[in-house]
Design a protein around this nucleic acid. Structure first.
Lengths: 133, 133
DNA sequence: GCTAACAGCTTGCAAAATGCAAGTACTTAT
DNA sequence: ATAAGTACTTGCATTTTGCAAGCTGTTAGC
């Protein structure tokens, strides 16, 4: 358990994912289907390898993702979201909605936004299925 | 406009509020009704004064909060959420829900969680009204 | 009008975090 | 046996954060 800053639930949550990279890793797994170290590294966000390794380790320790060995390739490691990590998806969706509204160049489609508002539970359910596929 | 890390909407949003302190400031204004520098400082989270000043300045520059002079007290500054900042409230609510689920000592009440799920729009509307009172 | 207190910062510097670039260890492919 | 793939670790430079003291503008009290 992290040292707690305060008893506020927002501060509590931000102690887990209040840095930039943690939610981007969750995004990579949940939205882009990336599962391996090299894929995170190659995601194009410019993360340093020591920071990536450090964040993956922290997210595993926090129970947000899990690290498995690829049975077919001994060198490869597979990262997956745990249920605790999957519970971050509503936060990810709200960030997408916020950015779509405030980024004039946002690539988010009208269809996605429509679905996020009208069928939010359905969208989240589909994301959960994709994240555990 | 910040230097953009990538075109991903999550990365875009996190460039605005991906550090710990920014969302805590939004929380202080929206949930605790704090509006002044001294109240943010005294919120008990341990923020350094130079960081607080720097974050407030950045949030103003980003259009998330606005800074007004108290007409009745020339030294005082009043910070308020802009519409862009108010649009962060759904993210704040999702963080509260996540923390309530995963923090065994969470102070979040069952009533709050019930409302967040069954009357999410109503809760958000009430928060918006409180944030602009 | 002067002084103290209030309010909101700024500054210099130390500590911590982040990132660069090279290197390491284990595994697989040839 | 060697080269390549994969996932890191390491040393060090750079950047960010935070501490503590101090500064500037305004108000309150006398």
């Amino acid at each position: 358990m992290r040292d707690q800053r305060s008893e506020c639930p927002i501060a509590y949550g931000l102690d887990f994912f209040g840095d930039k990279w943690s939610l981007l890793i969750v995004r990579d797994i949940a939205i882009y289907g990336r599962r391996r170290y090299g894929q995170f590294e190659a995601a194009g966000e410019g993360i340093a390898t020591n920071i990536l390794a450090s964040r993956l380790k922290q997210l595993v320790e926090d129970g947000i993702i899990e690290k498995l060995r690829d049975p077919e390739h001994g060198s490869k490691r597979i990262y997956r979201l745990t249920p605790k990590g999957i519970d971050l998806l509503p936060i990810v969706v709200e960030i997408i909605i916020w950015s779509a509204k405030h980024d004039p160049d946002s690539p988010v489609t009208r269809g996605y936004l429509h679905r996020a508002r009208r069928d939010r539970d359905g969208l989240l359910e589909e994301m959960r299925r994709n994240a555990t596929a």
